[in-house]
C-alpha cells in the first residue's frame, strides 16, 4: 500500500513517525500473509504432480520423459493436454500445438505481471518459467506490489520443487503398478482440467456459452479428425468474444 501519507501539520513529527511505523508494520504483515498463501498453494498444487506423473506413464511416457516434461514445460494444463493426445494415440504435432496453444494464457499472465515483478536480464529469463496459473492467482490476490512479489516467489519455489519431485514419484510409482486404469488414474487428467476450469465456468454466462460450444465442437469433431485437432478447433468457440461488444464485465 504505497498510498499518500496525507498532509501532516508542521511540528507533529512524532505523529508522522507513528503513522510511518504503522504503515511499515502493515506492509510487513501483508508480505508474510502473501508468503503463507503462496507456500500453501505451492505445496498443495505441487502434490498433484503425483497425478501428472502417474497419468503420463499411463499414457505411455517413460519416467524420464514425464520428468523432463514437468521440469521444462512446467505448466500443468499443457502437460496433461500433451499426454492426453499421446495416450489417445493421436498425432504428436497436433498434440504439441494444442498444448502450446493452451499455454498461451501464460503470455497474458506475463503481461499482467510484468510491471509488478519488474525483472530484467537473466532474472527475467528465470522468472518467465514460473509465470503460470497459480503464481498469477496468488500474486494478484495481494494488496500492494511488495506483497504481490513476495506471494509470487513464495508460490513459485515450493511449487516448482514439489511438482517435479511428485511427478517423478508418481511416474515411478505408476510404472510399477499393474493396471493404472484399475485404480482410476485415467480419470485424473479430465478431473484436473475440471478443477482448473471450475472457477472460470462459474464466473458468468459468457463462459458457460463458450464452454458449451467448445464441448460440442470437440466431441463432434472427434470421430472425423486426428486426435488432438478437435481440442484446438474448439478454441473457435471463444471467437464471439472478439466480435461482441463488451456487455457487462
Amino acid at each position: 500500500m504505497d498510498g499518500e501519507v496525507g498532509t501532516v501539520p508542521g511540528g507533529e513529527a512524532a505523529a508522522a513517525d507513528a503513522q510511518e511505523d504503522a504503515q511499515e508494520n502493515a506492509r510487513a504483515a501483508a508480505r508474510s500473509a502473501a508468503v503463507r498463501d503462496g507456500v500453501g498453494v505451492g505445496l498443495a498444487v505441487g502434490l498433484s504432480g503425483l497425478a501428472f506423473g502417474a497419468a503420463a506413464v499411463t499414457a505411455g511416457l517413460s519416467v524420464a520423459q514425464s520428468l523432463v516434461l514437468s521440469l521444462l514445460a512446467f505448466t500443468g494444463a499443457s502437460q496433461f493436454a500433451l499426454i492426453g493426445v499421446i495416450g489417445g494415440g493421436g498425432g504428436l504435432v497436433a498434440g504439441s500445438l494444442g498444448a502450446i496453444l493452451l499455454g498461451g494464457r501464460n503470455a497474458l499472465y506475463g503481461l499482467r505481471l510484468a510491471r509488478t515483478l519488474d525483472v530484467r536480464g537473466w532474472r527475467r529469463l528465470l522468472t518467465a518459467q514460473v509465470v503460470i496459473d497459480e503464481t498469477l492467482a496468488v500474486a494478484t490476490a495481494q494488496p500492494g506490489r511488495a506483497a504481490a512479489r513476495a506471494g509470487f516467489v513464495a508460490t513459485a519455489i515450493p511449487l516448482y520443487l514439489t511438482w517435479n519431485l511428485c511427478t517423478w514419484l508418481g511416474a515411478a510409482g505408476a510404472a510399477r503398478l499393474g493396471d493404472p486404469e484399475a485404480v482410476g488414474l485415467d480419470v485424473l487428467g479430465p478431473a484436473v482440467f475440471l478443477a482448473l476450469l471450475w472457477p472460470r465456468l462459474t464466473a458468468g454466462r459468457t463462459e458457460m456459452r463458450v464452454a458449451a460450444g467448445a464441448a460440442v465442437i470437440a466431441i463432434g469433431a472427434t470421430p472425423l479428425l486426428p486426435t488432438g485437432v478437435p481440442v484446438m478447433l474448439a478454441a473457435a468457440a471463444a471467437l464471439p468474444a472478439l466480435v461482441t461488444r463488451g456487455e457487462g464485465r
Partner: peptide
C-alpha cells in the same frame, strides 16, 4: 482457456 479446457474435459 475456458474453451480449451472444456474441450479437453
Amino acid at each position: 482457456p475456458v474453451a480449451l479446457l472444456t474441450a479437453l474435459v
